[in-house]
Design a protein around this nucleic acid. Structure first.
Lengths: 196, 196
DNA sequence: ACCATTCTTGAACGTATGGTAAATAACGAC
DNA sequence: GTCGTTATTTACCATACGTTCAAGAATGGT
């Protein structure tokens, strides 16, 4: 663990936090190296040494975003019933995508829903990331059925996809400027269609 | 109406149709002039003469998309009850975003949820477009209340925003590859929370 | 026949882009 | 103090980008 060579003058995680912010606001293709290095207060070669390239920076930014900004998902999945999972998920999602002094919406959606063919790997990566998140809910709802807390007539995959669809929609609305109370009402209505 | 000068060798609307397709797949920032002129089979100066510039082409593409691909909204709004409006809207939306041999999802969402500051006008334009669509549903639901077909205790704006949120989420799911039957199930569940 | 008008073609323009080379500076090991 | 190692700085590279110019070709008006 001996740090050989000249020590880095910036904090990698702090720089990544700035990168998250820029990608969140501008998306992958809408973010230039100059935008990144300005926001991160580091030089281009420093970015390349620390993160590989623009794509590497984005992937690590997504990782940090999932770890930090989407930690409420862990809390939601830990709720005792499927219903409580859904409630906690939607309600904290609304909070997360409408935080003051933060970009509106969700990085994993705003980052790049579509893109130039040369950036297809980014689009695929984001799709897979969201799919992985959805899969956690599938497993959680299957567990709820196994535990008898959710009717066996429900389809865990359908419920997970329903919630993922609603949160995606909420993120789009938030990015367009919808207020937190408005989105909270939408979330409550969406919960009305979730089994009790 | 006399057509003076050398006549155009391509059909403007047909070219716009190709532009819709490219923007739909790749988004505004992910589409280059070369992508456009290749797909439209016209030269750069021809594009500039007919559509102004890249932004103009996009705005007109959105116009054509709204007119052609989203005409089911007119049909939905013409339904006799608020409930029927919602049902027709969500069900035909699912069909529209999962058409075979067409790009998945919705141009007005995939086109540019976020972007570089220099492209902010595009993002704003798309947000406003979607907002205008939502406003049509607000008016329709207010009319439903006036006609006594929808309970006066319902909030037209909330219902419209709820539907817009669900369709946005469906579009995100479709662009990620969700199947039509899966999305149809999600839509039916979302309808369960809509007043009868 | 000639002209004004409009489109097409091909080439170019200036700039911005993602990425890198070379030289220098700060550290630990010995 | 010297050496290997790693970061920083500055400058640069090749390409791709959106946009436009200049010349020629096809039409209608007179």
């Amino acid at each position: 663990m001996a740090a050989r060579g000249r020590p880095r003058e910036f904090d990698v995680d702090e720089a990544l936090e700035r990168a998250v912010d820029v990608f969140w606001r501008q998306g992958y293709e809408g973010t230039t190296l100059e935008d990144l290095t300005n926001a991160m207060s580091i030089s281009r070669p420093s970015l390349y040494a620390a993160f590989g390239n623009k794509e590497g920076t984005f992937r690590q930014a997504i990782g940090r975003y999932a770890r930090v900004e989407m930690s409420y998902i862990d809390a939601a999945l830990a709720m005792p019933t499927a219903r409580a999972v859904a409630e906690h998920y939607l309600r904290s999602n609304v909070v997360s995508i409408t935080l003051p002094d933060r970009p509106r919406g969700c990085l994993s959606i705003q980052g790049g829903l579509s893109g130039h063919p040369t950036d297809q790997r980014i689009v695929d990566f984001l799709n897979e990331s969201r799919g992985a998140g959805e899969a956690r809910f599938v497993r959680r709802f299957q567990q709820a059925i196994d535990e008898g807390d959710l009717s066996a007539s429900e389809d865990p995959a359908e419920l997970a996809r329903y919630l993922a669809t609603v949160t995606a929609g909420l993120a789009v609305q938030a990015s367009a400027g919808a207020s937190r109370p408005d989105l909270a009402r939408v979330a409550e209505r969406a919960l009305a269609a979730f089994p009790r």
